[in-house]
Design a protein around this nucleic acid. Structure first.
Lengths: 132, 132
DNA sequence: GGCTTTCAACTACGACTGTAGTAGCACTAC
DNA sequence: GTAGTGCTACTACAGTCGTAGTTGAAAGCC
């Protein structure tokens, strides 16, 4: 599971649009960006997809014109990698401290809190199983 | 509670060093950076502190030479602001999804998990109180 | 078959980043 | 009082980013 390449925020926005359409042309991606309220010139989207291709975050099918772009990594992997970088750089690797921040902050709804509790319970069960 | 200004990662590293010493001169900050294994030329630290001063992230006491730099915001506020930006930009505001990621990932030790559970319980209690 | 539209490739460009060097002043120790 | 030292101010510079224009080819319209 190769680490996904670093991306700037503009690049990440384009990736999100691409994930949304699964795979598509510049125009498709541009449309998806528009729906998210992130309008960009056609050529700008092309530039960004080009840069993403250069760093192997997307692959281009050139047999078909207009070219079709496809993400190389699943969204979940990329977000996870971004998250780990962030935890390391900003919270010095203290993931727990980050989570406590969010809990204190009311960034999480009561439903969110319950979902997290459930997931923690599962994780703890899994941990015990592994030890056995 | 004014939002803390945006900072690049190099600037944030300098801020962390400054928080560590409380307040201090370029040499102090440079020393703290060294202890964290982040050696930089004296002038580089100065440049970064200058940029931070320009965006009002630190204040400079020029009555005393060498100048003494002091953070304007508490570390907690700055990290919180960084965190919120990150949640918005990367996780589209879905803080819960970020937390679930971390739980699944074993980024959190069993002790971390328990601490989080406790904090969630408190938050839920506080939520009820507010409603009443 | 010339005009229009669609695309990809290439170029542009100012802002910002990370990193640091140089100039020049004030103080210190001979 | 001259030579180093510590420090700030100014300058530099290549790399990256965000955003987009221009060029040129192909493809379709009428």
């Amino acid at each position: 599971m190769a680490r996904s390449p670093d991306m700037t925020s503009a690049e990440l926005r384009v990736m999100k649009a691409l994930w949304e359409v699964g795979s598509g042309t510049v125009a498709d991606v541009r449309g998806a960006l528009g729906k998210r309220g992130q309008e960009l010139a056609y050529t700008t989207v092309m530039t960004l997809l080009g840069r993403l291709a250069a760093k192997h975050a997307v692959v281009v099918d050139r047999t078909r014109e207009p070219f079709v772009y496809r993400p190389v990594h699943r969204k979940e992997s990329v977000l996870r990698d971004r998250l780990h970088d962030f935890v390391r750089e900003v919270f010095d690797g203290q993931a727990a401290s980050l989570v406590l921040n969010l809990v204190d902050d009311e960034s999480l709804s009561p439903a969110d809190l319950r979902a997290i509790e459930r997931r923690i319970a599962e994780a703890e069960r899994a941990g015990k199983d592994r030890k056995k």
